[in-house]
């Protein structure tokens, strides 16, 4: 049987959705795999939308908005781009980054809309079914995605993403501009930290574990785990629960 991917599209009301309509009016044919959710602006697409979509087994997610400068809400699509980039970075940690895509399609680009959907569908077909659907369901990956969702919804990453563009383009509160490279570096290290911390928290929710247990479960060096355990402990999210022999065990509070 041929693999027919399930694809979710978040379309901005003013450009891409209209572009989709134009494709229809023009009877442009494209694969029927896409299911569309209309949003008022691509900036509305919360990283958590994309991440929860992937968790329920959707094979690919495409976000479409207005071209730069065309946004009905002036700058919503720029914000969308920053958020999307973070999600992409997060997903690259679990090798799902190719299952999401961001594209700008205007209201007049009916033909292009068809092309974009076709090529995205093709690329997902090549990738094959999501590891979170069907028979080969990957429970571990699901847990990681949950951790990613929590990280993306957390205060730290949101704060970084929300302020990134203005710091890059208009300057920060000291009136200095910081380069994209520098900010990306900060963002990437924050993403890695938060992802790992959320994974640790999820593991510690169910049962008390030691640093070595966590190291094995998450396949991360135990000294790195210990560093994050200290940070989580300092925020009172976890605590020592017992010591067995020479090994302390931690649990989520």
């Amino acid at each position: 049987m041929n693999f027919e991917p399930k694809i979710l599209g978040f379309l901005c009301n003013w450009c891409s959705y209209a572009g989709g309509d134009l494709a229809g009016v023009s009877r442009i044919q494209y694969p029927p795999n896409i299911r569309v959710i209309r949003v008022m602006c691509s900036g509305r697409v919360d990283p958590k939308f994309i991440l929860s979509g992937l968790q329920v087994g959707i094979d690919g997610i495409i976000v479409m908005g207005c071209h730069h400068g065309d946004c009905h809400y002036l700058e919503g699509n720029y914000e969308a781009e920053v958020k999307f980039k973070m999600v992409k970075l997060l997903l690259s940690l679990v090798d799902l980054q190719d299952r999401i895509h961001l594209e700008w399609v205007s209201a007049s680009e009916g033909v292009r809309f068809g092309e974009v959907v076709t090529s995205f569908t093709e690329s997902i077909k090549k990738l094959g079914p999501s590891p979170l659907s069907g028979e080969n369901f990957d429970q571990q990956l699901l847990e990681k995605l949950k951790a990613i969702e929590l990280a993306a919804g957390g205060e730290r990453l949101r704060a970084l993403v929300a302020s990134k563009r203005i710091i890059m383009e208009e300057g920060n509160i000291y009136g200095e501009k910081i380069s994209q490279e520098e900010l990306d570096e900060i963002l990437i290290s924050a993403i890695e930290d938060e992802f790992l911390r959320q994974q640790i928290l999820l593991k510690l929710k169910n049962e008390p574990l030691s640093v070595k247990d966590l190291s094995q479960l998450l396949n991360i060096d135990s000294s790195v785990i210990l560093k994050h355990i200290i940070s989580l402990k300092a925020r009172n999210l976890i605590d020592y629960i017992k010591i067995e022999g020479i090994t302390p065990f931690y649990q989520k509070l």
Partner: peptide, 14 residues
């Protein structure tokens, strides 16, 4: 940082 627990840095064991 360890709240008074003496742990070694490689694996958090005493």
């Amino acid at each position: 940082p360890f709240a008074g627990k003496v742990l070694r840095l490689s694996d958090g064991d005493i």
